[in-house]
Design a binder for these strands. Structure first.
Lengths: 146, 146
DNA sequence: GCTTGACTTAGAGCGCACTCGAAGTTGCAG
DNA sequence: CTGCAACTTCGAGTGCGCTCTAAGTCAAGC
């Protein structure tokens, strides 16, 4: 099972570009990847696992500076476990807060969509038909904007 | 109730910088804000409501290009309601997908935190004490990485 | 042996969303 | 009246995270 993939294969696997993979290595997110005799990179299973976890950190919004700190701690081995945990926990909390905010904003957007649906229904209706105070009330709720 | 706030007051209120407020206006996210005789900006309640909704779009990750499209539709008035709804619905779906992904990644991060906690507990323990196959198993689950 | 395409490096360039600087008004406190 | 902070415009600068280019090397098929 010692396959050791080429950069292209890893790019396909991880959905990162070959450029990004090399970039991650040179900035220090990955320690130097093994090479074939040709000098071409050969990624191990461990390399790929690392890339996949780093990608999770990225997509949850961790800045590269912080991922760099995490990678550095990994290189330091067992002694750094509790600092690694602390770093991840701090990130975890931040993401949860962002998630909260995101959900709130999403609710407002959904409300607006519903509002537009009602407007669309009204547009199709006979303009002389009394629609009651509903629309005006909602505009008030939406604070004056369309 | 026709207060009409200064740019500084709006910055404080919306948590945007005065720079950003002017930037939003010049790129066209806001139609030109009213002015005092001095030429200084005076933001109406409607302006502020617009800014707040735009900020919700931003913090949910909508690119400015798309917010620009939305603002353009707002300027076009009632005829654009259904296109506005379509735009918001598309965005809504994208955010929900990102939210899913975020939650999955967060779960993996949490798992890793738990893993580190166990490592920390083991570090404190007598190294000659048999800890059973638990740690090895988890390393396998974590796919070879620390 | 030759072509084709994937690989290598170092460094430059890009898109986004601000963010700031310069140079000049304006408005309010003392 | 003086000082000074807050405002104005226009254009340039910044930080981030890639993304691409150039020039060259390598590997496999014909």
């Amino acid at each position: 099972m010692e396959t050791n993939l080429t950069i292209q294969q890893v790019a396909t696997l991880t959905q990162l570009s070959v450029h990004t993979l090399r970039y991650y290595e040179r900035v220090g997110l990955l320690q130097p990847v093994g090479r074939a005799t040709s000098g071409h990179r050969r990624y191990s299973a461990a390399d790929i696992a690392r890339i996949e976890f780093l990608t999770r950190l990225r997509t949850t919004g961790m800045p590269i500076r912080q991922m760099l700190r995490f990678s550095e701690l990994l290189r330091q081995g067992d002694a750094s476990v509790s600092e690694r945990r602390a770093l991840l926990e701090a990130h975890y909390q931040q993401v949860r807060e962002r998630l909260q905010e995101l959900n709130q904003n999403l609710a407002v957007i959904e409300f607006k969509i519903e509002h537009y649906k009602k407007l669309e229904a009204d547009q199709g209706a006979d303009p002389w038909l009394d629609k009651g105070p509903t629309v005006a009330k909602q505009n008030a709720a939406l604070r004056l904007e369309a």
